[in-house]
């Protein structure tokens, strides 16, 4: 469970995020949407303790992320290319993560086998360094890396961006399957409203650092979101 209390992040005078109260129960699949500068990535950075909050706390797995590091044992994340080690091959990168997260080679192989269709033969066995992969394949490697170690919380920033259509469908299938098991909390951000409403059961709309809407996904959600962002564009 993730609990947010009085959380805010200021950069100078600018308020990047201000969330007085938010709770994400275990096993929920949550989508974050919002225009650029809405605070999505800031929230992820705070959740992963990569930046310090100006006020308030985020509790993940029962403890404040900036005080205890136990959340690292159960969290897999891919925000951007800074989560890749670009001079490793994908295989080396995966086994590096598996080793750090205490996974056996067999566990890792099982996971990677399951991801075979998603990789579409373009990630494993290519004998290239991660820096030499295309943007899409880098993202696939990063997303796969976030799934290593049976995490109970998976955080992905813009996972659909840069992926080709087949991979987008493949990723949606993977995330839905993960969400179905109700053991893993999934937190993704996306600019693609259709994808995010299809995968997530709950949508948080951020605008200029504030939580504007908290929706339970229903067949009408996509229309509602589109209406919301259309008025935002006119305003």
């Amino acid at each position: 469970m993730i609990q947010v209390k009085q959380l805010s992040k200021h950069y100078g005078n600018k308020v990047a995020l201000n969330l007085p109260e938010l709770t994400l129960p275990d096993g929920q699949c949550v989508g974050l949407v919002g225009n650029n500068g809405a605070g999505k990535t800031t929230f992820f950075n705070l959740l992963l303790d990569l930046v310090r909050a100006t006020t308030g706390t985020i509790n993940s797995f029962g403890q404040a992320v900036h005080l205890s590091e136990d959340w690292k044992l159960h969290t897999g994340a891919y925000l951007d290319e800074r989560f890749l080690i670009d001079y490793l091959t994908p295989e080396e990168y995966f086994s590096f993560l598996a080793e750090l997260r205490g996974q056996s080679t067999a566990d890792l192989d099982a996971l990677l086998n399951g991801l075979g269709p998603f990789f579409a033969g373009e990630v494993l066995g290519t004998r290239k360094y991660l820096r030499d992969l295309s943007k899409g394949n880098m993202k696939k490697a990063g997303v796969a890396g976030a799934l290593i170690g049976a995490p109970k919380l998976v955080v992905l920033d813009e996972p659909f961006a840069n992926l080709d259509p087949s991979s987008q469908l493949g990723l949606k299938a993977i995330l839905k399957q993960l969400a179905l098991r109700k053991e893993v909390t999934i937190l993704i951000s996306s600019h693609d409203l259709a994808h995010v409403t299809e995968v997530c059961e709950r949508i948080l709309v951020l605008e200029r650092g504030e939580l504007k809407k908290d929706l339970r996904t229903s067949p009408e959600t996509l229309k509602e979101l589109e209406a919301l962002f259309t008025t935002a564009a006119k305003a």
Binding site: K72, F83, L97
Partner: peptide, 13 residues
């Protein structure tokens, strides 16, 4: 420096 974010989210001291 290029992958410090990753290292900071890995469960190692």
């Amino acid at each position: 420096s290029a992958c410090y974010s990753l290292l900071m989210t890995c469960p190692r001291s």
